[in-house]
Nucleic acid binder design. Structure first.
Lengths: 162, 162
DNA sequence: ATGTGTGCAAAGAGTTTGCACAGCC
DNA sequence: GGCTGTGCAAACTCTTTGCACACAT
């Protein structure tokens, strides 16, 4: 038993499928091949997928899916609380599962753009406290720290010696 | 003496002017009317100015400044550490003073897009701790919490009664 | 005099939209 | 059958770039 309590648990996909289904019923939306394919691909994709990456994966299975459909489906997922839209510094919109359990935050290297995820309960707790203080009902958050990763620090100090 | 320790102190503009000047000398860049005007307008502008807003203010003083110049100058400010580039959810790039002293974070209403700033030392402390744990040298951070503000909550509950 | 900075307009990148046809309920 | 969804291409928005001229140094 070496697992720590916050090691990523597999996300509860059923919960999200239900959420999506309810939203679609409520709005009278239809279940199509493309939507199912895109949604399942999204569920199976790594965190922070860009539309481009997702489209590539979708087209591997069905080459004639248009990118507009991917955009529209991801918007839909964002609307019903299944996905979270995120923009880091690179001008791309990325999506991640709105997984309440894994509220990971990000440490981003300003040199090599590597993204490291971390979780820190004490920050979550503080956030809830702050939201309450200002009377907000919290829906989500982004916490990104920008810095130089150990590898790039080493690279830089090596370069300085030459 | 009702002031709390974290009420915004006026930013130390001299420090930023020096930073910018050194950067320009080092890179052999030139001081022009437009750059001075844009930089000073930025210094006097509210936090989170968009390019559009800044351009409007700049043109109020000199109508023939092109928007490309504003983009280029803000990029310059970001490069030399005077300004921070930020993207919230609205697809616009906004800039703010890279004021180390006022490391405020943001509470953003998902209904009305209002942005509330707050400061919380304990979060800053935790961040430093986390960065150290992963060996990162921290340069900056973004911390945005998304939720429903008290006004919009009231509006929503009023609407529910009708 | 040299070379950077500017303004304009055009090009790019990412995203959204209009439309005719396809396909779900 | 009616109405939503799709794919395509065009439109849009924000940002970047190329170029000829202006202007710091």
């Amino acid at each position: 038993m070496k697992q720590k309590p916050h090691t990523h648990a597999p996300p509860n996909l059923e919960h999200f499928r239900t959420l999506l289904h309810q939203h679609m019923v409520k709005k009278g939306l239809r279940s199509t091949d493309q939507r199912r394919l895109i949604v399942e691909t999204f569920f199976g994709a790594p965190n922070h997928v860009s539309i481009e990456e997702l489209l590539a994966q979708v087209r591997a299975r069905d080459p004639k899916v248009g990118y507009a459909t991917v955009y529209r489906t991801l918007k839909l997922l964002a609307e019903c609380g299944v996905a979270l839209e995120r923009r880091f510094g690179d001008g791309l919109t990325r999506y991640e599962l709105a997984d309440e359990q894994s509220h990971h935050d990000h440490l981003i290297c300003v040199e090599c753009d590597k993204i490291l995820e971390f979780e820190e309960d004490r920050i979550e707790v503080l956030q809830d406290e702050i939201a309450k203080k200002y009377g907000y009902i919290l829906k989500s958050h982004k916490h990104e720290m920008y810095g130089v990763c150990p590898e790039c620090q080493a690279k830089a100090s090596r370069a300085r010696k030459n």
